[in-house]
Simulated scan of single mutants.
Amino acid sequence: MARAFVFPGQGSQDVGMGKALADAFPSARAVFEEVDDALGEKLSALIWEGPKETLTLTENAQPALMAVSMAVVRALEAERGVSLGKTVSFVAGHSLGEYSALAAAGAFSLGDAARLLRLRGRAMQKAVPVGLGGMAALLGVGVDVAEKVAAEAAQGDVCDVANDNEPTQVVLSGHKTAIDRVAEIGKAHGVRRAVPLPVSAPFHCALMQPAADAMAEALASVKVNTPVVPVVANVLAAPLSDPEEIKKRLIEQVTQRVRWRECVAAMSALGVTDFYEIGAGKVLAGLVKRTAPTANAVSIGLPTDIDAALAALTS
């Protein structure tokens, strides 16, 4: 039996997340204080009090979700004696969650992770003028079909696979004109539904190159340590531990697809039977179960979740 900690991406945010952790555990509260200090503002007040539309802005949601995930990790470590290095074999995260995973494994300091994600969120938002990009989730088909739909919908525009989430859910990203063609083209390929996503920019596609350039510059001056356990990288769907390669793959991640289905499958093939989603929401636990039906998938985001999972984590 092996375990993995997995960390959620954008979309899992909600006003009030992490407040119960901060109230229950001094170590969790300290995480939010450290993130506030790193950013020079009270992000914690926005996380706990809203408004939701401001929290949902990419530049806020990314460091906020990382903060909640790290509050769970610190509470497990400091309050409940769980050692990440001894408890799990791998960490992985969905898009921005990869930064949370790396921070949890000691590759990034908490302050650096917060500053990088603030910059990443702003750079991704600025890369494409509002209204020119879009994203859509294809339901009922896998990545092979999604690639065909994307190719037909492009017609000279950018239309890329952004997220390969699970065997029947793939997200496309690119110019809004191309994304608008996806639903009709998808019908001929067996797509059950094509759902436009309420996002402010077309993430994980070629249009994000300016943001990738910004991250390359930022990561060049940040110290990356060897993680205490390997991180399964989004763009490789394979474990990494080398600091320089971690930086390289994080830069590529901005424009390339999140290979989440393959990440889960790779961890399963490497013996992982128990996946713990660390942070806000329960999205990843659902994706894990649809990719690896025999796996155990548990979400830990509240003090009660920590205590419920403790026996399994320390056995």
Rank of each mutant, 00 (worst) to 15 (best):
V6F: 07
A22D: 01
E34V: 12
V35K: 04
D36Q: 13
D37C: 12
Q62T: 14
Q62P: 09
A67W: 01
A67Q: 01
M70E: 13
A71L: 08
A71R: 10
E79K: 05
R80P: 12
R80M: 14
T87S: 12
V88H: 04
V88Q: 03
V91T: 09
Y99E: 08
F108Q: 02
L110P: 05
A113I: 13
R115S: 06
L117V: 05
L119V: 12
L119F: 15
K126C: 11
G131I: 04
G131Q: 04
L132H: 13
G133A: 08
V141Y: 03
V143E: 09
A146F: 04
K148W: 07
V149I: 06
A150G: 06
Q155K: 13
Q155N: 07
D157E: 08
A162I: 07
N165M: 05
P167R: 08
T168Q: 13
V170N: 00
H175Q: 07
A178P: 05
A188V: 01
G190W: 04
P196R: 07
V199F: 01
V199M: 05
S200T: 08
A201E: 03
P202E: 01
H204M: 12
H204K: 13
Q209G: 05
P210R: 02
A211N: 06
E217V: 15
A220W: 06
A220L: 10
V224I: 15
A233N: 06
A233S: 15
L236A: 14
P239C: 14
E245G: 11
K247I: 10
L250E: 15
Q253V: 12
C263F: 00
M267P: 01
S268I: 01
S268V: 13
E277D: 10
A280V: 00
G281H: 00
V288P: 05
K289M: 11
A297I: 11
G301V: 05
D305L: 03
D307K: 13
A308N: 10
A312I: 11
